[in-house]
Amino acid sequence: MLTEATDPIATRFIAGGTNLLDLMKQQVEQPAKLVDINRLPLSAITELPNGGLRLGALVTNADTAYHPLVQGRYPLLAQTILAGASPQLRNKATNGGNLMQRTRCYYFYDVATPCNKRMPGSGCGALGGYNRVCGILGTSESCIATHPSDMCVALAALEAVVQVSGPHGERTIPMADFHRLPGNEPHRDNTLLPGELITAIDLPAQGFAQHYTYLKLRDRTSYAFALVSVAVGLELTDGLITQARLALGGVAHKPWRRPAAEAMLVGQPAEPETYRAVVQSLLAGSRGYDHNAFKIELAERAIVQALSQALNRSA
């Protein structure tokens, strides 16, 4: 079954082109038509009446990260975006495109190898192959790929809401529901319907601007995708955690959150002892493959490190 999302000859929107053009050059995607959306009026960052912020889908990653309101109210998002790609790419990459970027699974990119995501039913090359960059949580027998975005990890932690416009009108999709797990339809990265366009990403008022961090662990210091990353936002009152958000990148087909794990932090003193149970809850059910089992321990360490960094950060 081919949906618009996998049909290699379907129509594609093109924004910054930093992902789509690469995929086309590799012949992973061969859209019959490109619709250039760059002239749509989606390039503004505006304040919302509820105290939140609306990020236009066509605002570049760079302009978003350096916007004074983002820097002031959502430093977690700014830090996260700046941990991704390179300055040149961030100048071109858009917010909408960032959500829609496709996995970096090596087999997905190589049309000479099998990949259920690229060609449903062809098999998963990564499962018995070189899967260092693949996931450890929420994987399936069909696909163990990760979503590679940094920005989305912070958006998940911030509980952003995706604004969508399509043939059937407009709708909103909470970040938690935007990306999906592979299940047996790995060709579907997300829940966007055919023809739907992301118009904006709304950030709620709560920005966790006091106690936050984005920790990205990777194979070189810059310009590499995350092996494991952690976005943390905390609210503290009198040394006790009153609200916590934790999202992981590099480990699953979507930014990984478990509200139950976050709840375990609430009412707790900000001390390392609290973390162990949280880590276990967040990583429960994780499974390593031939080349990525280390990600489980790396994720444990990253979560603890990120929490302590967030707590020690005085804005």
């Binding site: 190898t113 194979d219 210091t221």
Partner: peptide
């Protein structure tokens, strides 16, 4: 990195084949 089942190079671009950056 080569997939030892097929001899296929899995790191064909400088995105996967890491060389040092300034940092």
């Amino acid at each position: 990195v080569y997939d030892e089942r097929t001899g296929r190079l899995m790191t064909p671009s400088l995105g996967e084949y890491h060389v040092p950056v300034h940092a």
